[in-house]
Amino acid sequence: MQIDREQAGSDVVLKVSGRLDTPNAKPFEASLMEAISSTDGGITVDLAGVDYVSSSGLRALLVAGKAMRTAKRDLALRSLQPQIREVFDISGFSTLFEIK
């Protein structure tokens, strides 16, 4: 898994590639929480390079989503591959997050 960060004013884009599986879930969650604490704008997670996601990866996104909602800030996702979108649809996460 690789995560590249782009800053645009107070907003952050995290470009993720690789697998969001159980072994990678904790470092992924840590990157999300670091982005949340180090800026005060919105966060977009670009998943174009992600080819696999399990419930552990979803859990990390949900933890970040709850933190952002508490802070009244926006967390959005973008560029989901079709098989990743299917996982989001099955789990109901497509309705929990804004997907660009």
């Binding site: 419930s55 949900l62 709850k66 909602r69 099955i90 929990l96």
Partner: peptide
Amino acid sequence: QLAENVEEARIGGHGLRFMRH
């Protein structure tokens, strides 16, 4: 049950749903 928003969403419980799908 699937949650309708982030506040109510439970952390966990999706593995079985994936297996059944």
